[in-house]
């Protein structure tokens, strides 16, 4: 097991290398010049050319890539072209809100979606099942930004229960922290919750049709014991897989959610950096996201061994 984890961790190195080359190349051919954005609308072509040169953007591709890669290998993600601040510092500033948002969304959706999926499977064909499926279809169909505006309208404007926007660190108190996260978490987590509910239902339905479930029921076990100990545990592997895959959904979702709720997280940082072509930030953030995704997948693989004793690495 330990050797497997080490092997997987080592395997992330070439993956990250490919990501680095891909991202750097993509940005190299993307239209747009940060020098033009920096110089402002009333700058002349000479101004832009001067800034372009100062930023080293006229240097050959390999030279620029080599310089950036050497920095990354030393733990230096570079300096933001616009703010002149280290990319690591900017990412550090933004990490907490994004982690708080995604964790809250993840916890809330898992807590709600798995029981919903289990109940739907248990009561298959009933109005409860149909209700859960309607929720799931709605969750898939409703874009996060539409839901976000509806939530703001209802809970912030009409009822004045929750704030419209912004983020308050947990260091400033748990109540304001969670108040600022409730609506964004729902907006972000709905599609994720819908996915988990559907997969849980499908997986449970398959397990519930197995002979050993019938045997368990026949020998008089309580329904909740059959559901949780026998069915859910055996249905857990696909559910955990989807939870892992869903992290990608959350990562892409935070970009929209953070923009709508004006949360200063990694998603907003990414959008702003793309719009103004702040290459070092874009490269740093994508590397971070890639690393996070690889590690989440590793964690999911390891969790299989806990859920299914037959799985061994």
């Amino acid at each position: 097991m330990f050797a497997y984890v080490i092997r997987r961790l080592l395997a992330t190195i070439p993956v990250m290398g490919v990501v680095a080359i891909f991202v750097f190349s993509l940005l190299y051919i993307t239209p747009g010049d940060p020098a033009a954005v920096i110089a402002g609308d009333i700058a002349t072509a000479e101004d832009i050319a001067r800034i372009h040169h100062q930023l080293g953007l006229d240097e050959p591709f390999l030279w620029r890539f080599g310089g950036w890669l050497w920095g990354v290998l030393r733990g230096d993600l570079g300096i933001s072209i616009f703010t002149n601040l280290p990319v690591a510092q900017l990412i550090g500033q933004r990490l907490e809100p994004t982690l708080a948002l995604t964790t809250t969304a993840l916890v809330v959706t898992v807590i709600f979606a798995i029981p919903l999926g289990v109940i739907a499977a248990w009561k298959v064909g009933t109005w409860i099942d149909r209700g859960v499926m309607i929720f799931a279809v709605l969750g898939f169909s409703l874009p996060a930004f539409v839901l976000a505006y509806l939530l703001i309208l209802a809970f912030s404007i009409e009822l004045d229960w929750l704030p419209v926007q912004g983020y308050v660190s947990i260091r400033e108190g748990f109540a304001p922290f969670i108040e600022h996260l409730i609506l964004p978490s729902i907006a972000l987590g709905l599609i994720y919750g819908a996915l988990i509910a559907r997969i849980t239902r499908a997986s449970m339905l398959e397990v519930l049709s197995q002979d050993y479930i019938r045997t368990a029921q026949a020998k008089g076990l309580a329904n909740e014991t059959v559901l949780v100990r026998h069915a859910l545990k055996n249905a857990a592997v696909p559910i955990v897989t989807v939870i892992g895959i869903g992290i990608a959904l959350l990562i892409s979702g935070v970009i929209v959610t953070e923009t709508v709720f004006a949360i200063p997280g990694i998603g907003r940082l990414t959008v702003d950096a793309i719009l103004r072509r702040d290459y070092p930030i874009i490269q740093g953030v994508i590397l971070l996201f890639s690393a996070a995704y690889v590690l989440v997948n590793l964690a999911v693989d390891i969790s299989y061994t806990l859920l299914d004793p037959r799985v061994r690495y």
């Binding site: 703001i152 419209v164 926007q165 709508v260 004006a262």
Partner: peptide
């Protein structure tokens, strides 16, 4: 200075007095 790029959110924020 609070940068809120989305105009619908900015409108909601001033509407709510934030």
């Amino acid at each position: 200075w609070l940068y809120i790029p989305d105009s619908a959110t900015a409108a909601a924020a001033i509407n709510a007095g934030e």
